[in-house]
Amino acid sequence: MQEVKGHALLTNEVGLHARPSVKLTQLAKRFAATVEIAIAADGPWTDAKSPVKIMRVKAAKGETLYMRANGADAEDAVRALADLVNRKFDEE
């Protein structure tokens, strides 16, 4: 299985705050693949399905969110997460 990577710029005002964190976790949980995010291309990586760990990432507007996934639906997972970030978490 090949690892799929992606990234997206945080452009919403609050960045990866509480509510966006919850949305990101809920979305990641829909995929069977392991999904991780980081605020640098080389990590450290955080389990995107863990609400507590994602809440602690605290990335701000203007930072780039990196994603990587492993599993059958890894590509869909990375695309969906990048979409969510690009849509400003549907909050603005």
Partner: peptide
């Protein structure tokens, strides 16, 4: 409550929901 509910919303087991809340 927010973390447990987030975990629960993904269909996780009761053990997983508790573990997520207690991870705090």
């Amino acid at each position: 409550a927010v973390m447990a509910a987030t975990e629960a919303s993904g269909g996780s087991s009761l053990d997983a929901v508790r573990a997520t809340a207690e991870e705090l």
